[in-house]
Design a protein around this nucleic acid. Sequence first.
RNA 1: GGGCGGUUAGCUCAGCGGUAGAGCACUACGUUGACAUCGUAGUGGCCACUGGUUCGAUCCCAGUACCGCCCACCA
Length: 1009
Amino acid sequence: MPMEKTFTPAEAEARISALWEEQKVGRAGANKKPGRPAFSVMIPPPNVTGSLHMGHAFNNTLQDILIRWHRMQGDDTLWQVGTDHAGIATQMVVERQLAETQQPGRREMGREAFLAKVWEWKAQSGDTIITQLKRLGASCDWDREAFTMSGNFPDAVVKVFVDMYNKGLIYRGKRLVNWDPHFETAISDLEVENVEVAGHMWHFKYRLAGGETYEYVEKDDTGAVILREMRDYISIATTRPETMLGDGAVAVHPSDARYAPIVGKMVHLPLCDRLIPIITDDYPDPAFGSGAVKITGAHDFNDYAVAKRHNLPCYRLMDTRAQMRADGAPYEAAVARAREIAAGSATSESEVDALNLVPEKYRGLDRLEARARVVADITAAGLAVTVLVREIDEETGSEHLRLEPVVETKKIMQPFGDRSKVVIEPMLTDQWFVDTAKIVGPALEAVRSGATKIMPESGEKTYFHWLENIEPWCISRQLWWGHQIPVWYGPRIRDKTDDTLKVAGIGWSENRQFIENDLQPFCAPSVEEALKLAKAYYGFEVVEAASLFESVLKSATPNSGISIFRDPDVLDTWFSSGLWPIGTLGWPDQTPELKTYFPTSTLITGSDIIFFWVARMMMMQIAVLDQTLPLEKRVPFKTVYLHGLVRDAKGKKMSKSLGNVIDPLDIIDEFGADALRFANAAMATLGGTLKLDTGRIAGYRNFGTKLWNACRFAEMNGVWEGHQTQTTPPAATQTANLWIIGETAKTLTEVNEALATYRFDTAADALYKFVWGRVCDWYVEFAKPLFDGDHAAETRQTMAWVLDQCMILLHPIMPFITEELWSTTAQGGIARANLLVHQDWPSYGPDLINPQADAEMTWVTTLIDEVRSARAQVHVPVGLKVDIVATSLSDQARQAWTRNAALIHRLARIDSFTEGPVPKGAISLAAPGATFAIPLAGLIDIAEEKSRLSKVMDKLAKEIGGLQGRLNNPNFAASAPEEVIVEARTNLSLRQDEAAKITAALARLAEIA
RNA sequence: GGGCGGUUAGCUCAGCGGUAGAGCACUACGUUGACAUCGUAGUGGCCACUGGUUCGAUCCCAGUACCGCCCACCA
C-alpha cells in the first residue's frame, strides 16, 4: 500500500502512543547498554488539579527530548513522573465542587469525611494531566507514577520532619505571619503577591495626656523655620486606620528635633480609653509623613519588629477571617487589664493574645467596614487632621465653611494571596518554621562549587540573592488536605515532685489558637512513639485524644488521665515536593533506584518556581541525606535548566481573563504533537520569554510533511525495497552521495553538541536546515537523474540510509512522525529490528565527511544557483531549456562539471553544454575556475543584462573595497592572526577574479550595443 | 528602592570580535518524475543611542534612553 500524501497526526499519534505504552518503552533502563551512565530526570510534579497548559507542554517537551536522546544512546534512563497533592489548590477545588453540588461543606462533614471526598475526587480526576502528557508523546516510566501523598511519601515526609525537629532545624513559635483570611491559613512569604493598588492615607491627632502642650517647629532643608505653633497632639499618618485600636506606642526617630520635647510622654489613643507612650526608634523616617508612626505590633511587619525591640504588647484585633474580633471579655474589662499591663503588671504572651481591645461597636465588623467607621468616629471626635472647605448650598446660595479630614490618595503595595486573591493580613499566630538559616549554607555551596549547575547563569544570581537573604519558612498550614504535622501536645508540667504532678490548665480560644506556653510538644513519626515520649515526660501512661477540646476534658484530673492530641495543621505542599527526587526513588529506604538514579541528572523547570521548589529541594535534601556523604552525592540534581514563561504571540501572559490562552491540546489536534514539540524546541533559547506563535507551529507541521514526502518519493523510487537498517552508510562513489553522507555526519555532530549544552533551539535549527535545506532541496533533486543512471543502486542505498538518519536524529524532537515513518518505510522490505524509540543513536564522526565531494558539491550548487538567478533576472521562462558555453574552464572545474553534468543539466535546465568562445548575445556567469555564457540571441534584453551584471559588480566592488581596506592597513597585518589575514587575501583574490570576468562580460555587452 | 534581563529585516527570534542570519509576512514567476502543508527567484537592516577598548565592535567595557521580569516593610 503506497504511502498517503501526508501524515495524519490525529490517527497515528493515538495508535503510536498505545503501542509505546503497551511496550513500556519508557520504563527505567529501557534500551540501556553496558558501560553507559545513568540519566535521570524528575518531572516537576504537576498539581493533581491541573490540566495541561502551554508551560507544561514546553517543559515536558524538553525533558522528553533529553530522555529520548539519552535512551537512544543506551544510557540507563529514568524519567520519573507523578503529581503533587497541592494542598490549597486541591482543597479549594473540592470545596467548590461540594458547594456546586449542594453537598455539606467541609466543616459540616468534618475532617475525616472531607478527606475521603478529596481522595474520591483524586481517584476520578487526578490523572487528567497524566493522560494529557501522553498525548504530548512524553516517554515517562508510567509504572512508577508517584504522588506526594501516596506510597512511601508520607513516611519520608514524616521522617524528615522528625529528623529536622530533633536537630533543631524546625521550631514552633508565635510570629507575625502572612494570613489568608479566605482559606484561614498561614501562608509563606512566597505565596504572597504584592500588587500596587490605589490606597488612602489619613492623618490623625493623638492628644498628649493631661492636656500638655509643646512648641512644634518645622524647618525646611536650609534650616529656616517654616512653621512654629503650639500643639497638644502628635500627628500620625496611616493607611490602615482600623489597626490603630491595637496601637502600643507612637514612634519617632531619635534625631527628630520636632518631637524631642515630647519623647517619653503619653498620648491618648483615639476612640480607646488607653494611653500609649511616645518612643524613639530608628525605624521612622523623619522625612516621610509627619515623621511619627503608630506602632501596631500585631498587624504590621515593621511595627512588629519595633514592638519586639521595645517590649510593647501586640494586641491582636482580628479573627481568622480578618473581621474585628468579637471574642473574649467585654471591652471595658479588657481595656482595664491592658491599663494594668501598661502600668507594669506581670502578664504573658498568651494573656495579651487573649485580650480583645476592640471596642464593642466595632466588634464583628469586616476590616474595611471597621476602617470607615474608625475614620468617621475620629473625625467626629475632632481628632482628624482637617482642611477647611468652602461649600455652597445650591438651594439657598449661601456659603459656609466646613472641616474635612485630609485624605491623601496614594499608591500602596498591597499583599494578596496567590491562590485566594484576597488581601493578606499580617497575623500573630503560632506556626511551625524551618530555620532556613541553618540549612542554607550547603545549598549555596553546592552551586558555588559547581556540584549543581544552574542554567542560564543569571538563574544562579537569582538563586544566590534569595538564599543569601533567606527568611524563616513558615511550613504549617491550617488546612486539612496535606501531610498532618507529626507532633502531639499535652499539658506542660508546672511542678513535679515525687508524689505530685501539676500540669498547666489548658484553655482554648474560639479561633483554635493554642495557648502555646502551656503546651508540651511530642514530635514523633507515629502516635505510638509520641505516647512513649509523653509517658517518659509525665511518668505514667497517657492516651491520645482526638482534639484539643477532648484533650482538655480528659485532662481534667491533674495526676491521671492525661491525654495528648495531634497538631491538626498540615505541612506546606512545598515541604513535601521539596523531597520529590529522593521521595520518588524510595527514600528513606536505600533502594537500588536511589543508588542508580540519584543525584538526578537534569531538572527542567520554569524560572518562576526557583524559590518555591528548586532552592527548597536543594536545602532540604542536602540537609536530610547522610551527612557523611560528599556534597556532590547529596545534591538532588547536577544541572538545573530554567526556562521562562510561555506567553502569547504578542508576549502577553496567557490568562483566562485576557482570553488569549492557547490550549496545547487544541494545538495538538490541529497541527499534531510533533509540530508543537518542534516549535517548543526551537523556542528554547537560553533566557528571555517564550512567545508562542501558531504560525510557527504550522511551519513545523509543514516541516514534518516535507520529510514525509521525501520518504514517499523514496518509496516511489524503490528505495525501501529490501532495505535493512544500516548503522554505517553504503560505500558510495558519486559525489552527491558522498556529499550528503558527509552532511549527515555534520548534522549528527551539531545535534549532539547542541543537546549536550541544552541548546534545543540549535539542535532544532540544525535538523531543520539539514532535512529541508540539504536533503530535500538538493539531495532529492540530485537523486532524480542518478536514479536513471548507472549508479541507481548506490543512490537508493544512500538515500535509504540518509532518510533513516533523518528519522533517528529527529526522533527525540518529533517522535510520532518519525516512529510512523520508521515502520511505514520498512513495509516493503525487512521489518525493523526495533521501534525507533529504541533504535541506537548513531556514533559516526567527521570521517564520513569527504572534503573533495564537499568542495565539488559547493561548486555545483553555487553554479546552479547562479544560472537560476541569472535566468530569472532576464526572464527566461522556467520551462525553456538553454544551452551553456564554457568560455574558460580550469581542469578542476571541468572535472566537477563532467562528474555532475546530469545534475547540473537537470537543475539548471540546460539543454547542451559546449566549450568555446563567447557567443554573441549571451549572458555571462562566473564560477570559481570557470566562466560561462548562455547564448540567448533574441531572447535577452541587453539593458536588463547590463543592469544585472552591474548589480553583481556593485556587490563585488563593495566586498573588494572592504577587504582591500583591511589588507592595506599596516596595523591589520601587524596585529591580526595569520589565518584571518590569509582568509582575507584568498577572499580578495577570488572576488577580484570574479570581478574581472564580470567586467569582461560588461565590456562585451558594450560592444554589442 | 534593590536585583536581573532585553533593544538585530514589517513580525517572532538566532548570532555575540573578522564582509549581517532563519522562519513567518511581502513581491514576481511556476501543473518541473515527493511535497501547493510546495518550488524558483527576489524585496527588506546606520544590529536603540553616546562614548571607550581594539588593526577591526552588532558582539567587549562605561554611560543614556526606552521596554520587560523578579524581589522589597516606607507608616
